[in-house]
Amino acid sequence: MRKTYLIPLEIIGIALGVIWLLPFYLMLVNSLKSKREIFEDTLKPPGSVTFDNYVQAFKELDFLRTFGNSLLILVISVALIIIFSSMAAYALSRVKSRTSTVIFFLFVAAMLIPFQSVMIPLITIFGKVEMLNRMGIIFMYLGFGASLSIFLYHGALNSIPKSLDEAATIDGANKFQIFWYIIFPMLKPITVTVGILNTIWIWNDYLLPSLVINQKGMETIPLKMFFFFGEYTKQWHLALAGLTLAIIPVIIAYFFAQKSIIKGVSEGAVK
């Protein structure tokens, strides 16, 4: 028999779940409607299901090229964030000194700096050295994603005993071999967490690509989505269909890795 005091909590949980799922319902349902049906009633299911919106959105977004641009930037950015953040966190966790402590807290403090406060100086600097488009945005993602990633890796590394390093050193391994072949494989849960969190952020980011990418044919999916919103018209039926296509890869990746994400967050933030 369930305890009575749990019933209000269950009701609140169900209500919050419905509220969280409502945007997904609106996106999916309205992506299957015509433009006229959307303006008539956004909550009502479509009268007749049609996938014409998806076909048209796929063509107008030049989806394969745009998807390739987003995927290229995403894969390189996330790979660099994982490699450099894990190495930096390893160095900060193993070298205990006042300097390493200050550096670590600077990375933590950097998480509190909003992007809007640095975007104009950042774009001005990169504009002078002409490092825009893909290389520039990958470098920026590495900088902005490093703080949280180092914080998570640092917490996980504190739970790995230094005796492993000492034993490997006695066996003749150097620092790089110790990290790459012994420590890094033990960080798999937190690596998955860092990868997924940065994947969701980078894949859905609109502001930074809109400031950095200035060549036609190199747009990411969020940037290309703006194509459906003109000065005099807004093609919501196509925009919602394109948005559904865009989030499918991230949702699939999250569901495959959700157990590792939860485990990694708990290891990185608690231990």
Rank of each mutant, 00 (worst) to 15 (best):
I248S: 04
G127A: 00
E37T: 01
G17V: 04
V192K: 05
A241W: 06
R2F: 03
L152D: 01
Q56V: 14
M218E: 14
L142E: 01
F184W: 12
A269G: 07
A269T: 10
F67P: 07
N69Y: 07
Y54G: 04
L197T: 12
P161A: 13
V55C: 07
L211G: 05
I252M: 05
I262G: 01
N30M: 03
S260E: 13
I160S: 08
W201D: 01
V108I: 09
T191M: 06
G47P: 05
R36Y: 14
Q56H: 12
V270Y: 07
F255L: 13
Q116D: 13
Q235I: 05
T191N: 00
I14R: 00
I200M: 14
V212M: 15
I202P: 11
A109H: 01
G143S: 04
F58Q: 03
D62G: 10
R2H: 08
P222K: 03
F139W: 07
A241D: 00
F151E: 00
P222V: 02
I183W: 14
M87T: 05
V192Q: 08
I160P: 07
S34V: 06
P121M: 15
F84E: 01
R2K: 13
V95K: 15
G195R: 06
H237S: 10
G155R: 11
A79N: 05
R65Y: 13
I73N: 04
L211Q: 13
S48V: 13
G13M: 14
N204R: 11
L142A: 09
A239D: 03
R98M: 11
F51H: 10
N214S: 10
S163G: 11
G264V: 03
Y90F: 15
G230V: 09
V18Y: 05
T101K: 12
T193A: 06
E267P: 02
L6V: 15
I196Y: 00
H154V: 06
L187T: 11
L197W: 09
D52W: 06
I196H: 08
L132Q: 07
V118E: 08
G264C: 04
P189L: 06
V108L: 13
F139M: 15
L207P: 04
D171H: 09
I137A: 01
A110H: 07
R36P: 03
M225H: 08
N174R: 11
S100N: 09
Y232E: 11
L238F: 13
S86D: 05
L71T: 15
A15M: 13
L112T: 14
P185L: 02
K3S: 12
N133S: 08
D165W: 04
V78G: 00
I262V: 15
I196R: 08
R94P: 03
P161E: 14
M1L: 09
E40A: 12
Y54W: 03
G230F: 02
L157A: 10
A109E: 00
S159K: 15
L61E: 02
K162D: 12
F126N: 08
K224I: 06
S100L: 08
L152N: 01
I213F: 05
P114K: 02
S149H: 02
A89K: 03
F58I: 06
Q258H: 15
F227E: 09
